[in-house]
Design a protein around this nucleic acid. Structure first.
Lengths: 247, 247
DNA sequence: CATTCTCGGTACGAAAGAGCACACACCTTG
DNA sequence: CAAGGTGTGTGCTCTTTCGTACCGAGAATG
């Protein structure tokens, strides 16, 4: 354990188990828009984000794409390996660059999935929360307007990066939200004029986090509430504690 | 094993394991629009559908609702219990009445989840397939038109009930597809005039299954392809074999 | 400093579906 | 057989977003 910054799942482990897994965990950096899981290709590692945010997207035959779930410090990338599958049709990519711990697939299967590691229970609960997030997204994508969805989405990211500024191009946002780029432009401008955010050339800054919550549909709270059930304490509180340790 | 009709997960088990679980399985009938899992209330059983089709829906605060996943003979209701949770914010209800095997929650946890039963591997793989279905639904709900989505949806149901006629009100369809009831009326009429279906007062009949596939978006095939990876043989072939045994 | 590339703002006709109202036909019940 | 309930067809206006085109500003490059 040469570094103290870590994902909440790892932080939640008993010290002994955390030390046992340490040799298999490698602290790495991930880049903006880098693909972590390629559709229908073998998943070669799992990843525990710390200050990076990643996103699962569905790509259609016609080239359109849309985000269906998003994970950060509270979760894990690669639950498919835990579910006995080596590939998945979804793509997982980096939405906000940052760091995290990486574990090779073989190590994960041997040292975690096929053992009685307490990590398994967290992964099970996270899988439930992620399924719920995806399910709510399915409803939200159909039933709510773009400004509501954009507010929800920015809040989810903001909670996970835990800083007010991050890179975010409109073209990328359009792909995530499943709309045209000009539509993003119009809607983002509304939020900007309402004083909720500012941005220029890919630099997004959250000015009024509370305002974003108000602008978002109830889906935002439903999603985070379910994520809070993974641990015994709401995950944002846990993340705050981790951040403080590293000051 | 006093009856031979059974869900594919149960059919895929080694004889010995199937016999071991038999005392805990009860063959029951489920009614149209009956709720099997109430949102945020303890899940009291798991259910393995045989000729019934069930559906997971998300209900919003404003009363709107939409289907986010659908399961039948290939899957299981209550994977949340397997994922260490006792409640979930989604509702699961019966879309087409029929039969299946029911196992009490305590029995399931004791005799399946917390054992090394081979059923666990099927459930893991099914959980992946169901997550994928939900994820594709999230994309499809946003990106595709109602007629495409309706064709996809009817095909998914048709594959699972394995008969051409079933009950289906427009009001119910509207809730599942997340649109207004009159919109369902218009679109369903288009399909009827194209000779794909007929229906009167809640009786739906599939006339041209191939035509429905053509009318559906690619999401239909993506969903079923992923379901096929649960077993070693495409699940519709397995279902056919089960049906034949019961002639 | 000129050129090219990337990113963002704006405009506008077209389409899908929302939201609502109303009429009608069939079924069930008294 | 009258009455009420349920399920369906249709019409209309209003929003949201699409699809596409074009322009401008800042950054990167030679």
């Amino acid at each position: 354990m040469d570094d103290r910054k870590q994902n909440l799942m790892l932080a939640a482990l008993p010290r002994k188990e955390r030390e046992r897994l340490d040799p298999f965990l490698k602290w790495v950096e991930v880049d903006l828009e880098e693909t972590l899981i390629e559709p229908n290709e073998p998943i070669s590692f799992v990843f525990f984000p710390y200050d990076s945010v990643t996103s699962t997207i569905q790509e259609m035959q016609d080239g359109a794409s849309i985000e269906t779930g998003l994970m950060g410090v509270e979760g894990m990338i690669g639950i498919q390996l835990w579910l006995q599958m080596r590939t998945t049709p979804s793509r997982t990519l980096v939405q906000v660059a940052g760091h995290g711990h990486r574990m090779e697939a073989a190590d994960f299967i041997r040292e975690v999935r096929d053992t009685n590691s307490p990590l398994n229970e967290f992964i099970a609960r996270y899988t439930h929360a992620f399924l719920t997030m995806t399910s709510i997204a399915a409803a939200c994508n159909r039933l709510h307007t773009l400004d509501q969805r954009m507010c929800r989405w920015l809040k989810l990211i903001h909670n996970r990066v835990r800083r007010d500024e991050f890179q975010m191009r409109q073209e990328f946002m359009a792909q995530m939200l499943g709309v045209q780029r000009p539509t993003v432009s119009t809607t983002a401008n509304m939020l900007q004029q309402a004083g909720l955010i500012t941005y220029t050339r890919g630099q997004m800054k959250v000015l009024d986090s509370e305002g974003l919550t108000e602008g978002a549909c109830g889906c935002y709270e439903m999603m985070e509430r379910e994520m809070d059930r993974i641990y015994e304490v709401p995950w944002r509180e846990l993340a705050r504690r981790e951040d403080q340790k590293n000051r």
